[in-house]
């Protein structure tokens, strides 16, 4: 049996691997067919009566689609801070390029942002693997670059999950976990709880992040879908710094916990 510390070192990958197993289709005992067994070796382009030249008939399965999704664009009147979480994607059903852009705005300035560019690959019925890079920008701090590998999808009972492991310069590692749920109060009124958790493998003094669990947040938003593509909301977000990150904040005489009341809109194009 492995020592616990080995397992800990592998934790990000272990979590992902475990999830891969859970969500991967288990082969049933039923007899399995070859889907091309009836083709007699013919293809869409070749064989008797095929039209000459390249294939003309291309359906939506070979088309590319795109969307821009503003999951959170919100404002806290007390602190005059804004938060946004926008992502765009382009691609097919199973392979997509995804750009994720999250950030905090205060006093008209971008305080902090994370920009991720990932290749999203449909791994199983409900889950995608996401490989890519992320750039963290700190207005007062040091920018960090990461390569990332993650899992995103829909778990049983309709929980939307996102788990990403990061590897940065000088052996830095990080993990982020997020979960969301949507509770339909009516066909248009939706209660939307969410939770997020971040971990870092190393202290990052410049950005005032400590090793281990660094921060957690819980959100509860109530939106009204004027259309399915445009929904204003009100919400509350609790955030808390944890562990060594909290210690660093305490030492700097900063608050550890925060409650923000927000108004915002959720949209997609």
């Amino acid at each position: 049996m492995k020592r616990l510390s080995d397992v800990d070192a592998l934790k990000p990958l272990t979590i992902l691997a475990m999830f891969a197993m859970i969500s991967s289709p288990l082969l049933a005992q039923a007899e399995i067919r070859d889907p091309h067994a009836y083709s007699n070796g013919y293809t869409l382009e070749e064989g008797p009566y095929a039209l000459a030249g390249p294939r003309l008939l291309k359906l939506a399965d070979e088309h590319k689609f795109w969307a821009i999704q503003g999951n959170r664009v919100e404002y806290d009147a007390d602190s005059e801070n804004g938060v946004f979480e926008i992502q765009g994607w382009y691609g097919s059903t199973y392979e997509r390029l995804v750009i994720k852009f999250d950030g905090d705005v205060a006093n008209g300035r971008l305080q902090e942002s994370q920009t991720g560019v990932v290749w999203s690959h449909a791994y199983s019925t409900f889950f995608d693997t996401q490989w890519g890079v992320r750039l963290d920008h700190y207005d007062a701090g040091t920018d960090r670059q990461w390569i990332s590998v993650g899992f995103q999808g829909l778990a049983p009972y309709w929980f939307e999950l996102e788990m990403t492991a990061y590897l940065g310069e000088s052996g830095r590692t990080a993990i982020s976990l997020a979960a969301e749920y949507e509770l339909l109060l009516s066909q248009r009124l939706v209660l939307h709880p969410s939770a997020e958790l971040s971990l870092y493998g190393k202290n990052d003094v410049e950005n005032r992040l400590g090793e281990g669990l660094s921060d957690a947040s819980l959100g509860l938003r109530l939106r009204y879908e004027i259309t399915r593509q445009f929904a204003p909301y009100v919400g509350v977000e609790w955030t808390s710094k944890l562990g060594k990150t909290a210690d660093i904040a305490r030492a700097a005489d900063e608050s550890i916990r925060d409650t923000r009341y927000v108004v915002g809109m959720r949209f997609w194009l």
Binding site: R33, P35, H36, Y38, S39, N40, Y42, T43, L44, G47, L57, K58, L59, D61, E62, T93, Y94, A122
Partner: peptide
């Protein structure tokens, strides 16, 4: 994912039935 297929293969990935 809003995908529809026969035997899990959309038209573009399929071969004809002979």
């Amino acid at each position: 994912r809003y995908s529809w297929s026969i035997d899990g293969l959309e038209f573009g990935k399929s071969t004809p039935v002979s």
